[in-house]
Design a protein around this nucleic acid. Structure first.
Length: 437
RNA sequence: GCGGCCAUAGCUCAGUUGGUUAGAGCACAAGAUUGUGAUUCUUGGGGUCGCGGGUUCGAAUCCCGUUGGCCGCCCCA
C-alpha cells in the first residue's frame, strides 16, 4: 500500500465512523447531564510519575511514555482516574460537595490490540468525590445503566454485576487469611471465571497450600448471587462492621430497585477487579450474550486521592469505553444510520429557479436547519433519488411552476405526500413538519 | 512480550500444476433522462496483488524476512 497507514491499534474516523462515535458520545453526555454531572477535561500528556504512583512501576510497560525535550519523564494518559484525582485534590477545599464530574476523552495504552481493545480508545468517566455513603454508588450505577439504556439497550442486553472487596477481605480474614494472602486470593478469584481451578496456581506458588476445605468455602462465597445468600453466608460472624456493610448493600440494592433498575443489577461476588486500589463496592457491566469483553467497570477508591498527596477524600467512579460499546450496538442493530443527514434536500429546476432557491436555502440554514442541495443542474428524477438516499426528511421543490405561483412544494420523503406553501411561510411550515417527527 | 491464522480495487472476494495488457459484484462518477425516489442499461475512474529480498526464462501464485490485521496467552487501570 502506497503512502502511510495509521499506527497499530489506532483508528481513522471517516465520517461514517465519526458519526457513530458522536452518537455514542452524545448519549453518554446527555445521560451525565441529566444526572447533574459536570464535564471537565485535562491534558493528554502527564508526568509519568502520576501513573506509576497510582499503579506501580510495572505499569510503564503498558504506557506510551518517553522523555520530553526538557528531560521530563512523561506518558500519554492510559486512564483518567489519577488526573481527576489530582484536579479534585488540588481544589478539594473549594469544591461544593458532592463533587459529580464526568469526561469524554481519548486514552492510550501500549498493549497488543485485540477485539474490543485498541491502543487508542475513548472512554466516558464519571466520578463522585466527597460522599462516603452508598448513595454515591446508587447514583453512579444508575448513570451507568442510562449510559447503555440510552441507546435502546435493555436488561435483556446487559447486566451490571455488583461485588464488594471489603466484604471479601472481611470474609477471608474471618477464615484466617493474612492481608497479603487475601490480596493473592482475590487475584485468583478474579481469574476463576475464566481459568477455573488453574486460577489458584499463582496463589499456591506464592503462599503455599490452600486447604481443600477452605477453598471450598471461598468458592461457595464466590458463587453467591443474592443479598439473602450473602446474609446467610455471613450470619455466623455477627460483627458490627459487618452489620454496617450489609446495611450498605441493602441501601444500594433497594435504591436501585426504587429507581426501577433492579433488573439491571445482579449480586455477583466473582467480580473483584484485580486492582488493589479499589476499597469497597466494585461493579462491571457485561453483554448478556457474553461474547464481548467487559463494557464498563468501576468501584470505590477511597484511598487514592490521599495516596496521590491530597486530602483524604472518598471517591467512586466508573469508566465505559467506546470500542466495546460500539461492537455491542453494531451487534444489536442499534448503530444509527443518518446522524449527519440533512433534514431538507432542495430540488432545483434550473438556473432561474436556483437563484430563488439559494435565498431560501441560506435563510433556512441561518435558522438552524440542516439543508443540502445539488451543486450542478440535475434531472428531477436524479435529484429525488439523491434526496431519498441522503436521508432527508423533506424535499423542497423549486420548479418553474412553483416560482411563478410564489410557492414552494414540500414533499415528505417518508410517505411521498406533497403540498404547496407560500414562500413567505416556508420556515414555519418546515419547522412544524420537522418538530412533528 | 509469546503462539496460531491471514494480507489481490474504497468494501466482499475470484484468479487453474507459476505463463501475455490481474477480474467480478457492491460502492463511486458520467450519460441514457428539461418535473417526481431504494429500478434498468451504457460508459468511466480506481490495483507497481501490504512491503523488501530470493528461486525461475517468467511470480499475485513457490521460499525467506518484514509490516499490518484477526484470534488466543500475559495483562486489562
Amino acid at each position: 500500500m502506497a503512502g502511510f497507514q495509521s499506527l497499530p491499534g489506532f483508528r481513522d474516523f471517516y465520517p461514517e465512523e465519526f458519526s457513530r462515535r458522536q452518537h455514542i458520545f452524545a448519549t453518554w453526555r446527555t445521560a451525565a447531564r441529566a444526572s447533574g454531572f459536570q464535564e471537565y477535561d485535562a491534558p493528554v500528556l502527564e508526568p509519568l510519575e502520576l501513573f506509576t504512583t497510582k499503579s506501580g512501576d510495572e505499569i510503564e510497560g503498558q504506557l506510551f511514555s518517553f522523555t520530553d525535550k526538557g528531560g521530563r519523564e512523561v506518558a500519554l494518559r492510559p486512564e483518567m482516574t489519577p488526573t481527576v484525582c489530582r484536579m479534585v485534590g488540588a481544589r478539594a477545599g473549594a469544591l461544593k460537595r458532592p463533587i459529580k464530574w464526568f469526561s469524554l476523552a481519548e486514552f492510550y495504552r501500549y498493549e497488543r490490540a485485540q477485539k474490543g481493545r485498541l491502543r487508542a480508545f475513548n472512554q466516558f468517566n464519571a466520578d463522585i468525590f466527597g460522599e462516603a455513603g452508598p448513595e454515591a454508588e446508587i447514583e453512579l450505577m444508575a448513570l451507568l445503566i442510562q449510559c447503555l439504556a440510552g441507546f435502546g439497550l435493555t436488561a435483556e442486553d446487559f447486566i451490571i454485576r455488583l461485588s464488594d472487596r471489603d466484604l471479601w477481605f472481611f470474609y477471608l480474614e474471618a477464615l484466617g487469611f493474612t492481608d497479603p494472602q487475601a490480596q493473592g486470593l482475590l487475584t485468583a478469584i478474579d481469574r476463576f471465571e475464566k481459568m477455573g481451578d488453574d486460577a489458584f496456581k499463582g496463589y499456591v506458588e506464592v503462599h503455599g497450600i490452600l486447604a481443600e476445605e477452605t477453598k471450598a468455602k471461598v468458592l461457595a462465597f464466590l458463587k453467591i448471587k443474592s443479598l439473602a445468600g450473602l446474609e446467610a453466608a455471613l450470619a455466623e460472624f455477627n460483627s458490627e462492621k459487618l452489620g454496617v456493610r450489609l446495611a450498605d448493600w441493602r441501601k444500594v440494592l433497594t435504591g436501585l430497585a426504587d429507581m426501577g433498575l433492579a433488573d439491571f443489577i445482579s449480586v455477583d461476588l466473582s467480580v473483584v477487579r484485580g486492582l488493589a486500589y479499589y476499597t469497597g463496592f466494585v461493579f462491571e457491566a457485561f453483554d448478556r450474550r457474553g461474547d464481548l469483553r467487559a463494557l464498563a467497570g468501576g468501584g470505590r477508591y477511597n484511598n487514592l486521592v490521599k495516596k496521590l498527596g491530597y486530602a483524604d477524600l472518598p471517591a467512586v467512579g466508573f469508566a465505559i469505553g467506546d470500542v466495546t460499546t460500539g461492537l455491542l450496538l453494531e451487534q444489536r442493530g442499534l448503530a444509527p444510520q443518518f446522524i449527519n443527514a440533512p433534514e431538507i434536500y432542495v430540488i432545483i429546476g434550473g438556473e432561474a429557479e436556483r437563484r430563488v432557491a439559494l435565498a431560501d436555502i441560506q435563510a433556512l440554514r441561518a435558522a438552524g436547519f440542516r439543508v443540502e442541495y445539488p451543486f450542478k443542474e440535475l434531472a428531477f428524477g436524479k435529484q429525488f433519488k439523491v434526496a431519498a438516499e441522503c436521508g432527508a426528511k423533506l424535499a423542497l421543490i423549486y420548479g418553474g411552476d412553483e416560482i411563478a405561483k410564489g410557492v414552494v412544494k414540500i414533499r415528505a420523503m417518508v410517505d411521498r405526500t406533497e403540498h404547496e406553501v407560500p414562500r413567505d411561510q416556508l420556515r414555519a411550515a418546515v419547522r412544524d413538519y420537522l418538530s412533528g417527527q
